[in-house]
Design a protein around this nucleic acid. Sequence first.
RNA 1: GCUCACAUAGCUCAGAUGGUAGAGCACUUCCUUGGUAAGGAAGAGGUCAUCGGUUCGAAUCCGAUUGUGAGCACCA
Length: 639
Amino acid sequence: MVNITLPDGSVRSFDGPVTGTDVAGDISRSLAKAALAIKVNGALQDIYLPIGEDAGVEIITAKSTEGLDLLRHDAAHVLAEAVKELFPNTQVTIGPNIENGFYYDFARETPFTTEDLAVIEARMHEIVQRDEDIRREVWDRDEAVAFFESQGEAYKAEIIAGIPTGEEVGLYRQGDFIDLCRGPHLPSTGKLGKAFKLMSVAGAYWRGDSNNEMLTRIYGTAWANEKDLKDYLTRLEEAERRDHRRLGREMDLFHLQEEAPGAVFWHPKGWTLFQCMIDYMRRKQIQAGYQEVSTPEIMDKSLWEKSGHAEKFGENMYLTQTPDDRVYAVKPMNCPGHVQIFKQGIKSYRDLPCYLAEFGKVHRYEPSGALHGLMRVRAFTQDDAHIFCTEEQITDECVKASTLIHQIYNDFGFDRVVVKYSDRPEQRVGSDEVWDHAEAALMKALNAMQVEWSANPGEGAFYGPKLEFVLRDAIGRDWQCGTVQVDLNMPELLGATYVDADSRRKYPVMIHRALFGSLERFCGILIEHHAGHFPLWLSPLQIVVATITDDADDYARTVQEQLAAAGLRSELDLRNEKISYKVREHSVTKVPAIFVVGKREAEEGTVAIRRLGGKAQDVRSLDEAIAAFVEEAQNPLDR
RNA sequence: GCUCACAUAGCUCAGAUGGUAGAGCACUUCCUUGGUAAGGAAGAGGUCAUCGGUUCGAAUCCGAUUGUGAGCACCA
């Protein structure tokens, strides 16, 4: 007797060992059909393996996340099988499931191109049609290595050779295709169904290391049913519609061009948005006790040699040579400049903490392949600040900076923020003792912050450990923005000191922090987060005054003058076009509100307000409308 | 930087097999004065990313360069 306990607590008894298939079939035929795998006492396993003793069993279908992951993983195997059938000379490597789908990395002389995808996808459908059994086999490790080597599968052999000797190796066979895999897998290829699609090809380094050879990767998406697949494709289209590069053009915010790769040409509207962010931040920082400064964009290379930038960051730096043969570096960071300001005069411990902030434009020569709209550029503006303080003040100051970051993200409409903690990288300045100290201090601050955090080992800056603040946008993507870094190295490298209470000279601690991070990137994130529908206070153009007939032109001018006098950003649309034409155009460019004026409004001193995305018109007196909009357009700091 | 793809009018895109370019929208002018997501007509606009090669002839074929896209690696 084998007693199987199901998740609802019910128990079913069987005469002897049973498989997941038997259990599912015992419950219902439809479940037997939908069953992909089972969980026996909480552990996932193949559905056709026997269960010999009493156990808790859960049937896994594609409705659960786990089931969907299995399905996607199987899609990767079917992809590999299809490729091996079509291109026998290709070597297989690895193919996991990922968010929304799967990929498989192949090694071959000539990489796949997009044209190959259709052929491969068609073969995958054939393999699903064949409904081949997928069965687990247990092999001896050395035999498995020998087998894959004999098949010319060097990468697979290498992976298996990495498994400890003596450990058993699970292989899965489907048709003529056999692959190393931890499993579990679906019982047959037919279970994959039709809801999958190959999406793109890309290069990817073997084991993720750019020193290794590049493989050819095929990405695909797979879902439980065709409706989910269709929904996913629709979501991709929606994401494309809110792409900041597209909206930036449509809304006339900025452009990029070939002569200045990774550098932004801000148009008047985009620059207005940018300045709104700066205005907000400037006030916020002053409230928090910061002093704003400005430091040179180019400084002699020798300074960057002292700070360690030339050595540790040199590959990312722009250099300029002047007619007098001096070599200057364009600043990639603001810290050395701020240290120069701190160093002027003699600082006392009473001057600490000293907060120096700058909207500093920095240039970094980023790898060309990394550039992406506003999100990844070579010239960007940081809302950067350096807090010079004593060791005792580190915890407090880090907590304060973190609080500030959370408040700011909140004002900009982001409520989910997570923190990542990064410790010493391989490329670094300073002794291990100093790093021990800096890491411990930052960790102490992190614990005092009471925030959700995760570790990011080895990812710190070259001068100190850091915290990164990652926010999640409206469509669930994570963006790294703010950062707080504890630096016990830079002041010493650049000779910055203060006089302590015991009248001895000491090196201050330097906390580097940025809140938006890069203003350019933050701007891009805002565009995508709001899909161009900015809250009124951020919207570069707040109101368009549009006339119905030219009888209303004079009145429209009056309206716009009054809007301007009230500090609202508006434009006048007196063109000889129908009102529906004007409404459409200003809706497409995401203007938050249109004040429509015709003969009636001119006579009554009113405006007909049409909000972006709304259908209703709200006719109000001009004074009332202006008061309401002034109120709504207030900076969050004034509310 | 690496792999693949792409680069034609301001934007979105057509332009088998080589014979020096087209559409829609936008723009300009005219008609229309129209009440909430595209009224009508006419006109103007391109050294087909750049440089080289093959050819009688290149937007088209080949190579290089630059830029862009999707990934990888890197990262604010």
